[in-house]
Design a protein around this nucleic acid. Structure first.
Length: 329
DNA sequence: TTGTGTTTTATTGCCTCC
DNA sequence: GGAGGCAATAAAACACAA
């Protein structure tokens, strides 16, 4: 019986609503007006005949009176359509002249249902029956209304979510573009500073050599240290002239032709630029490599406070393990 | 008045839960 | 296996411009 629904049979749906293809449904109402479902018949018959419930069917409930009239053209069947409240001869006349009409719920009924939906958008059986009683509808109609209402709510919610996502995407895009600009300006600044540093280092190396020649004796230990540090910068003189940015020791395992070898080999345990922590795309990382800049000069994006526009971009330290040789302040 | 797009009511089939 | 929820869909009702 999967996929087939028998409305009302022993349940609380309150009778049949058979569609065009009514072979799937079981009509509960006999043409003579008796009901196949005992509890339902009790409910609806009492409702239509007593004063406790205004009506079992709202004046605007969908109904067919083909059945009521004993017609045979339609399988749609409903309970008595005549509403005690506001159905007079006018409505009766209306029904007889507009067979098979699908009736919309009245504004009041909808308001009532909306309120009920606001408090709880799911419908327990008792509540359904009570609402149906109050509104003069079939429980099945109440259930359908709630179902459709949930669907509408879901659609609206999806629209809202979509708009929220769209606006947050827009914000992120603006942020991203700003960061790109900032990155470019930082790169330019780094190039300038690197040039200066190389020049300075060159001068210092020359002065150490001339001092050495002048005295012809062992230099003081501090000068040796300085020279040693300088050489760590990769300042092979011949290379310095050709690759101005290649300031790192080409013998160092970390650098190959000015490119951080660890960048090329992420498997290397010394890979200091963890791809998982990188907010830069592979292209950007490649560009960094091509620019011969130590990749870790850029802070992780999440470490940057963007609420304050940076006044100086030079607060970063090259993470060179050899005695923290360089630092800007 | 009529054509057309939108909304509302209702059905059907499938799925999940108990 | 029955009950109920949901997605997809049909169709009536409604709104509105031409």
């Amino acid at each position: 019986m999967a996929g087939r629904r028998v409305y009302g049979g022993g349940g609380d749906d309150g009778g049949s609503i058979s569609g065009v293809s009514s072979n799937h449904s079981v009509l509960l109402q006999n043409r003579g007006g008796s009901f196949a479902s005992e509890p339902l018949s009790a409910l609806f018959l009492s409702g239509s005949s007593s004063s406790t419930s205004p009506s079992l069917l709202g004046s605007r409930s969908m109904m067919s009176f083909e059945d009521i009239r004993g017609g045979n053209g339609s399988n749609r069947s409903f309970f008595c359509p005549f509403d005690n409240e506001d159905n007079g001869d006018e409505d009766l006349d209306d029904y007889f002249h507009h067979p098979e009409k699908k009736r919309r719920l009245s504004a009041d009924q909808v308001r009532f249902l909306e309120k009920s939906f606001e408090t709880e958008n799911k419908l327990e059986p008792e509540r359904k029956v009570q609402l149906a009683k109050d509104l003069g509808l079939q429980p099945r109609q109440v259930a359908i209304w709630f179902q459709n209402r949930r669907a509408r709510w879901k659609t609206k919610q999806l629209e809202k979510d979509y708009e929220a996502l769209q606006s947050s995407y827009g914000n992120l895009k603006v942020d991203y573009e700003n960061l790109l600009k900032e990155k470019d300006s930082l790169k330019a600044e780094i190039l300038v500073l690197t040039d200066k540093l190389i020049l300075k280092d060159k001068e210092r190396s020359n002065s150490v050599v001339s001092e050495d020649d002048k005295f012809g004796e062992e230099p003081p230990q501090n000068l040796v240290d300085e020279a040693s540090k300088s050489s760590k910068l990769g300042c092979k003189q011949e290379e310095m002239s050709s690759v101005k940015s290649d300031i790192f020791d080409s013998d160092s395992p970390h650098y190959t032709d000015g490119v951080h070898s660890s960048l090329l080999d992420p498997g290397d345990s010394s890979y200091i630029f963890d791809p998982d922590q990188s907010d830069l795309s592979q292209d950007e990382e490649d560009n960094l490599g091509k620019n011969l800049l130590p990749p870790c000069i850029f802070p992780k994006l999440e470490d940057v406070d963007y609420s304050d526009p940076p006044t100086s971009s030079c607060n970063f330290v090259f993470p060179i393990d050899d005695n923290a040789l360089w630092s800007w302040s």
